[in-house]
Computed example of a mutant assay.
Amino acid sequence: MPDASGSTPAISRDEVAHLARLSRLALTDAELDQYAQQLDSILGHVAQVSEVAADDVPPTAHPADLRNVLRDDVVTPGLTVEQALSGAPAVEQDRFAVPQILGEEE
């Protein structure tokens, strides 16, 4: 059945009601009408985009041809074990010592 614009909707109110039942959603009549209209609009826009897509246009993730703009990965010296542990409140076998919290028996 044609809608207010004179075209046949891509999804009917009954189909929206059926989907709502399958999804276990309780929708009012007003919500069914609203969602049917919104879903029809979305499907119409998807159809428009599908018409525009041409076989000679390669798929893209971004309209501009971007390249990796990160700096080169250069190895630099890090902290020594002594420097890393210098501010630790407790050290055990060249590691941070922390109290055990898992596996303790009370």
Rank of each mutant, 00 (worst) to 15 (best):
M1C: 11
P2V: 15
P2D: 04
D3N: 15
D3I: 06
A4K: 15
S5Y: 09
P9N: 10
A10E: 11
I11E: 03
S12N: 06
S12L: 06
E15T: 15
V16C: 01
A17H: 05
A17F: 07
A17L: 05
L19P: 05
L19V: 04
A20Q: 09
L22N: 13
L22E: 14
L22H: 12
S23R: 07
S23A: 14
S23T: 00
R24L: 14
R24T: 15
A30F: 00
E31C: 12
L32D: 05
Q34G: 04
A36I: 01
A36K: 02
A36Q: 01
Q37S: 13
L39Q: 10
D40L: 01
S41M: 13
G44H: 08
H45E: 13
H45S: 07
H45Y: 02
V46K: 02
Q48I: 12
E51V: 02
V52A: 14
A53I: 03
A54P: 03
A54R: 03
D56Y: 02
V57Y: 04
V57R: 06
A61P: 04
H62S: 07
A64K: 09
L66C: 02
L66D: 07
N68L: 14
V69K: 08
V69N: 08
V75C: 08
T76C: 00
P77F: 02
L79T: 07
A84E: 06
G87S: 15
G87N: 14
A90T: 00
R95T: 13
R95P: 02
R95M: 14
R95Y: 00
F96K: 00
A97V: 05
P99N: 02
Q100K: 11
G103T: 09
G103I: 06
E106T: 03
